[in-house]
């Protein structure tokens, strides 16, 4: 067994809250989120950077939390699926996934939604093909993707409408 290396002090903004944390250097960001912070909405599917179930936002961009050390997030802002909406008020992309029945078992869904939000926020207006290319880093083993693509396109419209509404207030 490896001897445990001493913990490092980390300062990470998680879902908008300032967190002072400690973790050994070999802690993955996904394990810090799930085990220390109890944010179990971020899933571990493959642990080898392939399936995308662990997708979170680092400074607003989608990354795979299993291919990132917790210490690499030190001084940065992390957003997880828990940070984008609540059970009472879903994010427009979450609402679209529910509306389009874009999930069956739901395991890949948090990662899909985090990837989809980044796609909409940082991409050009999406076509069906662009959504499929944009979700190349996320694997779903149930749905066949059809309803996921439909949901992302609907979520894109809903996010734009929500932005317009906010802009008008």
């Amino acid at each position: 067994m490896d001897e445990e290396r001493s913990s490092m002090k980390l300062h990470i903004t998680v879902n908008g809250a300032d967190r002072r944390l400690e973790a050994p250097p070999n802690t993955l960001l996904v394990d810090l989120l799930r085990r220390q912070l109890g944010l179990t909405g971020t899933h571990v599917g493959c642990d080898t950077c392939q399936c995308g179930a662990c997708t979170v936002h680092l400074d607003g961009r989608a990354v795979k939390a299993c291919a990132l050390l917790a210490v690499q997030a030190d001084g940065h802002a992390v957003t997880t699926i828990e940070g984008v909406g609540s059970a009472q008020q879903l994010h427009p992309m979450q609402e679209a996934f529910r509306d389009c029945h874009a999930l069956q078992c739901g395991f890949c869904t948090p990662g899909m939604i985090m990837a989809a939000i980044d796609l909409v926020e940082h991409g050009v207006p999406l076509s069906n093909r662009a959504v499929r290319e944009g979700l190349e880093g996320n694997i779903c083993r149930c749905t066949g993707y059809h309803n996921i693509v439909k949901a992302v396109l609907q979520g894109q419209k809903a996010m734009a409408a929500a932005d317009d509404k906010q802009g008008a207030v």
Partner: peptide, 9 residues
Amino acid sequence: IGDPQVRNR
């Protein structure tokens, strides 16, 4: 290269 998440890192 890879996928969007990989390209972001």
